[in-house]
């Protein structure tokens, strides 16, 4: 006899559970962790390099870089002063909580203060796979165009901060900042955003200040 079984379980429940484990493990080890998401080439690795240059004098930092193949980005992070682990996703368009867990196994976690995770360059998939990081950050960039919040709403909904990179290119590209920010506001009202240029260094101070505030805040709670 056919019977109906009601389930109503999130399709991401297994991943969410592992993300919860990652989160507890990272906190117990005293790490503050950030997941950086963006489309390919938006400047994730460049921003990690800038962030490392500013923070490695004061903090011990690990970087985990997710890519479909190669270790170019982990090499860049290591060059910039992090202890870096590369995740090759073997074709997957995102890092999931399980991959992050395996990468964490390769690090002596209590040694570090901060973990920076570079997700795979993709504007759709990483949004639905939580990792268990303390903050999720999205990096948009000027050459991508001002319509991205309208076309990729899922990505903008649940992030904690938005960087708008490559503002040095604003004079050369038709990018309507008001239109862009209106879309962002619709999806994520009150989202803190930082216009930056990894090339000129403009705006990086504000991002670093915010990040350090978040780190200090997490220590007191």
């Amino acid at each position: 006899m056919p019977r109906k079984v009601t389930i109503v379980e999130s399709i991401h429940s297994a991943n969410d559970q592992l993300a919860g484990e990652n989160s507890r493990r990272l906190r117990k080890a005293g790490l503050f962790s950030v997941n950086m998401m963006a489309s390919p080439g938006a400047g994730k690795t460049s921003l990690i390099e800038k962030t490392l240059a500013r923070l490695t004098p004061h903090y011990s930092i690990a970087a985990i870089d997710g890519d479909v193949a190669t270790s170019i980005d982990a090499d860049r992070a290591a060059e910039a002063g992090a202890i870096a682990v590369q995740i090759n996703t073997g074709g997957q368009c995102h890092i999931d909580a399980h991959m992050l867990r395996n990468a964490l196994d390769e690090l002596d976690l209590p040694e570090f203060d901060i973990l920076l995770v570079e997700n795979v360059g993709n504007l759709i998939c990483p949004a639905s796979f939580k990792l268990g990081t303390d903050r999720n950050v999205l990096i948009a960039s000027i050459p991508e165009g001002d319509d991205k919040p309208y076309k990729y709403p899922a990505m903008y909904q649940d992030v904690d901060a938005l960087l708008i990179n490559k503002i040095d290119l604003l004079p050369y590209i038709d990018f309507d900042m008001d239109y862009f920010l209106q879309g962002v506001k619709m999806l994520n009202p009150g989202l803190v955003s930082f216009p930056v240029s990894c090339k000129t260094g403009e705006g990086i101070d504000a991002w670093i200040d915010w990040l350090e505030d978040q780190i200090k805040g997490s220590k007191t709670t």
């Binding site: 109906k4 079984v5 009601t6 999130s10 399709i11």
Partner: peptide, 10 residues
């Protein structure tokens, strides 16, 4: 929404 609502089993 993104969930498995129900299944039919035998």
């Amino acid at each position: 929404e993104f969930h498995l609502d129900s299944i039919i089993v035998e």
